[in-house]
Amino acid sequence: MPGTEGERAEPAEPVTWLMLVYRVPSEPTRLRAAVWRRLRNLGAVYLQNSAAVAPRTPQSERMLRTLRSEIVESMSGQAFLITTSSVVGDNELAALYNAARDDEYEEILDKCVDFHEGVAKEVRASHFTYGELEENEEDLAKLKGWYEKVKARDVLGAGRAKDVVKALDDCARTLEGFAASVYEAEDSAISQPPRPGAG
């Protein structure tokens, strides 16, 4: 059940979890880093060293099966992919997973604040150019893309998701206001009469 704003979600029924327990050679260290990055991109949370879990979805199962295969076949390691639907402390595990998503959402919220500050700086400097507008459009598109990635792995309904949706809407309104100022500056430049002696 999705959590309300500011609360952790508690599953209405037990979640089916996938747990990857693995061991890779200590050298080269890039192997461990590669596994960590893949698990992080999936949104998995570590219960202890080399044991990470994620709710079972078609996407998470596909990614974890692929990762397990790579650990065994390409990294000369060992890996076991375990599924369980009955865990003592299931709500605590769900809260741990949601806390990781809320941390990611918090990062996006911080970047939304930076977005507003960046636009405000351009307004104060009267940098009403299409180049600045395009740059801000790209920044907002990146924030939206980041949100979509986190949302895709937010399968248990972390509490900060609604805050991010609102913050992105606010960013979009700020961008619209800046765009209007750019168009106004352009129209003003076009409508100004030529200077005496010009031409």
Rank of each mutant, 00 (worst) to 15 (best):
G131M: 06
V155Y: 01
D110H: 14
S181H: 08
K162S: 15
E132D: 10
N136Q: 15
K142N: 09
N98G: 15
D154V: 03
E134R: 09
L133Q: 07
E106H: 15
D110I: 09
K144T: 10
E122T: 12
F128A: 01
V113D: 12
A158P: 04
R153K: 12
D102P: 06
G145I: 00
V119K: 05
V155E: 02
R160Y: 15
Y105S: 09
D154R: 01
L143I: 01
E176M: 07
A141Q: 09
E134V: 05
Y183W: 07
G131C: 00
A152T: 02
A179T: 06
K142W: 07
D110P: 04
H116A: 11
E117A: 15
L168E: 01
K144N: 13
V165E: 15
E117K: 15
R160P: 04
E117P: 05
A180S: 08
V113Y: 05
G118V: 00
I108K: 02
R173W: 06
L133G: 07
G159N: 03
V155A: 00
G157S: 10
E117Q: 14
D170K: 11
A158G: 05
F178S: 06
A141D: 12
K111W: 10
E106N: 14
E106V: 10
F178K: 03
E137W: 09
K166Q: 10
Y183E: 14
V119L: 15
K151T: 02
A172D: 15
F128K: 03
G159Q: 03
K144E: 15
K162H: 11
D114P: 08
R101Y: 05
H116F: 10
K111T: 12
V165D: 04
S181P: 05
F178L: 04
K121V: 13
A158Y: 01
K111Y: 11
E137N: 11
N136K: 15
D170L: 14
L109E: 11
A100G: 09
V113F: 08
G157R: 03
A161I: 08
K149V: 06
F128Y: 13
R173V: 07
V165W: 05
G157N: 06
A161Y: 08
L143A: 01
K142E: 12
E138P: 06
K142Y: 11
E148W: 04
E176Y: 10
E104R: 10
V119D: 01
D102I: 06
F128Q: 04
V164F: 03
L143Y: 00
L109T: 11
K111V: 13
G145W: 00
D103A: 14
R160T: 07
A100S: 13
R124Q: 10
G157K: 01
R124M: 11
A100P: 05
R153P: 05
K149Y: 00
L109G: 07
C171V: 03
V150S: 02
K121G: 09
D163Q: 12
K142M: 07
N98W: 09
S181W: 07
K121L: 14
W146F: 14
E122R: 14
A120H: 14
E104W: 00
A99G: 13
